[in-house]
Design a protein around this nucleic acid. Structure first.
Length: 362
DNA sequence: AAGTCGGGGGT
DNA sequence: ACCCCAGACTT
């Protein structure tokens, strides 16, 4: 249908309705009590692809640990990743650190203050740039996140697949047009996202108490559940991780993941990956030296199995614990180093590894 | 345009 | 089992 023909009518009601709704329904969240661009930025990066409930405790910890951007800039990256542990998408933490140093060292600590300047920073894309620009600096630029796609698709009856470039342009243009009507662009941006998160939810939206019900194309046609349109993602890939957990005298051999893969810069154990399940370590094509190491050590009777689901991979891991005799502790494979349990606690680790440690030694 | 990058929660 | 979440970056 030609939604643009109704746009003038709907937008005159839509924007003020949402702003009014927000005043009565907004949650009390810590980052809503500040206009400090550093805190706004911190919260927005933490909340990328992350629910408020999951991100909130991390935000509190980061603000406590690094009260200023200078302190974040000076932070040890390993410590920063340790603080980020469990949140996922660890490149966010690395980019956060890089941008903190850039702002501190190259911009004299002065945070970029416009949408276009913000966009140049590592880890700040179109959404986050708009969020910081409007929340911290009052710039009239529209945020378009998952909530906004859903709300606009439904209210305006837009059936374009939101994963396509064309749809992104459509939604951005509409959002830009709408925010021109806003009394306060920062409040309006907050309002439409909060509305999507609380009222216009993906499943079972609360249409009966909706302030724009009578102007919502989806509601009026009974198609709420079909919008927004989104192409299905590719099926998840199965991976099989075989870990050899070399141990000696209450220490364990770990290594930093440096390859271009999941969990970059986090720590795990000696790893061999296969395309197929291989329950027995003898079926693994290990280097001769590693095979010899296992043979001379004491292998735990039962390996520990664990599974980790990522958005795009299903990792099935099996951990073989090997206690090495004192004489062989200098013969670890390349990259592995010995760490005490206390040191391991402080290393940044994938949840898969943390869970294993808890299960096996916790 | 398609892939990659985490982990958790809801249905 | 599937979808979504205050997305960004690389290929």
């Amino acid at each position: 249908m030609d939604w643009q023909s109704d746009l003038n009518v709907i937008e005159a009601v839509f924007v003020p309705s949402l702003e009014g709704w927000y005043e009565h329904h907004k949650r009390d969240l810590p980052w809503r009590h500040t206009r400090n661009p550093y805190y706004i930025w911190l919260s927005e990066v933490i909340l990328q692809q992350t629910r408020v409930a999951q991100g909130k405790p991390y935000y509190e910890r980061f603000v406590d640990t690094y009260p200023t951007i200078e302190e974040l800039a000076r932070a040890d990256e390993k410590e920063l990743l340790r603080l980020w542990q469990g949140l996922g998408y660890y490149s966010r933490a690395r980019n956060l650190h890089q941008t903190a140093r850039y702002v501190t060292d190259q911009l004299a600590g002065k945070f970029p203050a416009t949408y276009h300047e913000l966009l140049k920073m590592k880890g700040i894309g179109v959404y986050t740039a708009a969020a910081i620009a409007s929340f911290a600096f009052g710039e009239r630029v529209a945020v378009v996140d998952g909530n906004v796609y859903r709300v606009l698709a439904r209210v305006f009856g837009i059936y374009e697949d939101i994963t396509t470039t064309g749809a992104k342009k459509t939604f951005a243009a509409l959002a830009t047009r709408l925010i021109q009507k806003a009394d306060n662009p920062a409040t309006y941006n907050q309002a439409i996202m909060e509305f999507g998160a609380i009222q216009c939810t993906p499943v079972a939206p609360d249409c009966l108490l909706c302030p724009v019900q009578q102007h919502c194309v989806a509601y009026l046609t009974g198609q709420q559940h079909r919008l927004p349109v989104k192409a299905k993602k590719a099926p998840v890939r199965d991976r099989y991780f075989h870990y050899l957990v070399f141990s000696n005298n209450n220490k364990m051999a770990m290594r930093e993941r440096t390859e271009r893969d999941v969990w970059q810069q986090l720590y795990d154990f000696y790893l061999l990956e296969t395309d197929e399940p291989k329950p027995n370590w003898r079926d693994l094509l290990l280097p001769d030296s590693v095979n010899e190491l296992v043979r001379q050590g004491v292998l735990a009777a039962t390996p520990v199995e664990a599974m980790q689901l990522l958005s795009h991979q299903r990792i099935r891991a099996i951990f073989h614990f090997v206690e090495l005799p004192d004489g062989l502790t200098e013969q670890l494979p390349e990259g592995l180093k010995w760490y005490s349990m206390a040191e391991i606690t402080d290393l940044p680790k994938p949840v898969l590894i943390t869970n294993y440690l808890e299960k096996a030694f916790g």
